[in-house]
Amino acid sequence: MNYFTLPIEEWTNRFVDDWLLPVTGDFFDSISDSLRTFVDGVTNLLLITPPEVLVLILVLIAWKFSGKGLALFVLLGSLYLGSVELWEAAMQTVAIVIVSTLISVIIGIPVGILAATNKTMANIVRPILDFMQTLPSFVYLIPAILLFGLGNVPAVIATFVFATPPAVRMTTLGILQVPADVVEASKAFGSTKWQLLYKVQLPLAMPSIMAGINQTMMLALSMAVIASMIGAPGLGSVVLEGISTVNVGLGLTGGLGIVVLAIVMDRITQGLVRKK
């Protein structure tokens, strides 16, 4: 099948070396700086707060939105993280997850709304989302390093790419699922587009949007672990260390910590959906 040669590798590299880095470098540096400030800020906040206070707050939240079971699990899970000396690593992971989920949601929900209300936008967004979801994550880890350096900033960027699609898709789905006669009724009484959106469509799409946020958070957690390969601190790096030193025990210790975080985050956000 080799009829002609397509030098994608060469083109891409020349594009990155000759244009992307020299021309946009400063721009990406400034993004990088502000993101770093943000992630570090959240990490520090989580680490400065005494773990006991944080755990108490989490237990109460778990109790309110889910129930006694989860509250107990939060307590036991936190004791576990403390006892294996992974509290700090866990908080670093949580910080990356929180920041990237926030960015995913802040960008994803409006894009989802646009895609639901505008056909052209939907046609543009759909292939981009497909691309984001199917492209192997390692492929965009490389340019992430080039543009944002090592550490938690490229981790947040890579996580954003990986975790945003469900937020967009579930928002679009939720809005499109609002019954047509309800939308018609809203219009017939003279709603502006904006009133239709925030008085009718968004409230009715909320369960779907919350499910999207839940999925985004779960994906962000799994990506935050992979992102340890590009130097992101946290539980992922513990697992990575376990792999590289063939230390099964260390790998399991870190892995269990990730499971604890996953269960707590999932149940709390699901509880939020049900309370709505």
Partner: peptide, 9 residues
């Protein structure tokens, strides 16, 4: 409306 079109929320 035929199917009422009420706002369920």
């Amino acid at each position: 409306f035929q199917q009422f079109g009420l706002f369920p929320h």
